[in-house]
């Protein structure tokens, strides 16, 4: 399957050339930068590939393509992308900056879990954005999950999260997904609020996963986002959304490498079924073609 976000078209020109020359390297660099890998990682990748090409004394672009795919796959596969959801209830906190698709991701994730016949309750702890609760409730309904709403406007998000976990414990619901309001990582007050939500939940049950949702269209700011959220919310996994656009999301590789937090889920469409687990092999295959 040629995913729309493949680098394929950017690379086709260079791999169809007869042999590897300087122009190939320039093209490769441009392609990687255009895919948001960022200047540092691009330099690293290009250097690494130059070394490999020299080592194997090849000048066949097809070899280079294979090496690129392998290099990316190898880097992506260094961390384990499996979700740790063995606690009962397994509490998943979903965090991220504004507009990356947290609420949508929760809807899809709830559906994903329902497909495995797990009972799911979602907590609408985004009490800030207008109508976020309704948006989540709509998704929950589509996914067949229960929803815990705040009892009044502007209720403390931590208390909504608490009530959600409480309900799950009381009714024996297996999975708890908690939506939080989007916040820019520079707002320290809001980041502290997130730490509070975490603390409050942990009074009832350990948190199984804290998923940071990253938008594939994001550029190098993704790294700053990840670092801030790891510090304040103890992120355990990344979710890459909006891969159905033309963005390549190359920055996640840098994020994964610099932070040591694995990518766990990817969202590739607007449908409720368009969220899948992350497989480095498939991702690299689709990216490089």
């Amino acid at each position: 399957m040629a995913a729309s976000w493949s680098l394929g078209s950017a690379l086709r020109g260079m791999f169809s050339r007869a042999k590897i020359d300087e122009e190939t390297w320039t093209d490769l660099e441009d392609a990687l930068i255009s895919a948001d890998f960022g200047p540092d990682l691009t330099d690293q990748l290009v250097d690494e590939l130059r070394e490999k090409v020299a080592k194997y004394r090849t000048d066949d672009p097809a070899d280079l393509q294979r090496m690129l795919r392998e290099t990316i796959e190898e880097r992506l596969a260094r961390l384990d992308p499996t979700l740790a959801l063995s606690n009962r209830p397994a509490v998943v906190l979903v965090v991220g900056v504004n507009g990356v698709g947290k609420t949508t991701t929760i809807g899809k994730f709830a559906k994903f879990l329902r497909n495995y016949d797990r009972s799911v309750v979602v907590g609408a702890a985004d009490t800030f954005r207008a109508a976020a609760v309704e948006q989540l409730a709509t998704w929950a309904e589509r996914a067949g999950a229960e929803v815990v709403r705040p009892q009044q406007d502007g209720q403390d998000p931590a208390s909504v999260a608490f009530q959600t976990v409480e309900k799950a414990q009381r009714e024996g619901i297996e999975m708890v997904l908690i939506d939080t309001a989007g916040r820019l990582q520079t707002k320290s007050g809001l980041m502290d609020e997130l730490a509070k939500v975490r603390r409050v939940i942990e009074k009832l049950a350990p948190i199984a996963e804290v998923l940071l949702v990253l938008d594939a269209t994001t550029g190098q700011n993704g790294l700053a986002q990840a670092e801030a959220f790891i510090e304040h919310a103890g992120v355990t996994g990344l979710v890459l959304t909006k891969l159905d656009g033309s963005a390549k999301g190359g920055f996640v590789l840098a994020v994964q490498e610099k932070t040591g937090i694995p990518i766990k889920l990817i969202g590739q469409g607007e449908g409720i079924g368009d969220l899948t687990g992350f497989t480095p092999h498939v991702f690299a295959q689709q990216l490089v073609g």
Binding site: S34, D215, A216, T217, G219, A247
Partner: peptide, 15 residues
């Protein structure tokens, strides 16, 4: 457009 967008801004803006 989101100030955080990466290289894809060009493709998106053109589209």
């Amino acid at each position: 457009i989101d100030a955080m967008i990466g290289q894809d801004a060009v493709t998106t803006a053109r589209a």
